[in-house]
Design a protein around this nucleic acid. Structure first.
Lengths: 138, 138
DNA sequence: GTTTTTGCAAAGTATTTGCAAATGG
DNA sequence: CCATTTGCAAATACTTTGCAAAAAC
């Protein structure tokens, strides 16, 4: 289970590492395909999952039906434009009260926060079940 | 485009209206099928979308790959258990700083916040694009 | 050489859509 | 009746998986 180098993974990482636009797997695929014309979308997914497990990426869920990836693994929040779908960084949650229409250049209609962890029962017992994935690990 | 009554929609609403467990379309389907054995999952989806548009439901995105529906349309946050997938209400975002391991019965590993609205460009121009859906309308 | 990674195709979820028939007003 | 809603099947979107071949070490 040792991780071996791969040119595809390197290209994926090189593409995403400096980005601030939270690409989806498909965006990564579209770009990396230029250098690796027959790279498979499956390879992109596998590497994004691996990079996430390695702690180099963080998954971002904004409710638009696809997972976005963020090379900035520090704690910060996001803004999604309901019209163009763009995902933008918001400094951090202490800015929350301020991320209203005075400090934000666009228009903020609302927000939602999701906490994650273990519920009371699962914390107590070693309760089972399939759910495991959750991009934002602290 | 007037909305007409339907027994299926009534059953769906009756099922979901008092719930605090944020059911998914499939959970609604499974339950309502008892009374309407040949109801279609498409009908459930169509009605959940309609009820959401009518402002009777709110969509909840917790990053588990499916949309959850909440009859409590007031502003409040959610907690998802990484183990069992249960979605629980968290009073509201002003509790954020307190929703740590002292006030919460389970274990909070982290959280993420998503703001939504219009970005600077889309606010200015009448910029187009497909993205439209977003459950949490304030 | 053995292990990991890839590409491809197929499968797996979640959700949406087209359409003729059934239902509602 | 005319408009809306339904059930069904097919389609779509996103993501994962099985497997033999290629690449890494």
């Amino acid at each position: 289970m040792a991780v071996k180098y791969s040119r595809q993974r390197e290209a994926i990482w090189d593409y995403i590492k400096g980005r601030k636009d939270h690409p989806t797997a498909d965006m990564v695929y579209t770009y990396v395909k230029k250098a690796f014309p027959n790279i498979s979308l499956a390879t992109v997914y596998r590497n994004l999952v691996l990079l996430t497990e390695m702690g180099k990426l963080r998954t971002v869920y904004v409710g638009d039906g696809t997972v976005h990836f963020d090379p900035d693994v520090s704690d910060h929040d996001h803004f999604i434009c309901k019209k163009c779908g763009k995902v933008i960084d918001v400094p951090d949650y202490f800015e929350r009260a301020k991320a209203d229409n005075e400090s934000f250049p666009g228009r903020v209609d609302g927000s939602f926060t999701v906490f994650y962890g273990l519920c009371e029962k699962c914390l107590a017992k070693g309760n089972e079940k399939p759910y495991e994935s959750n991009g934002s690990d602290t």
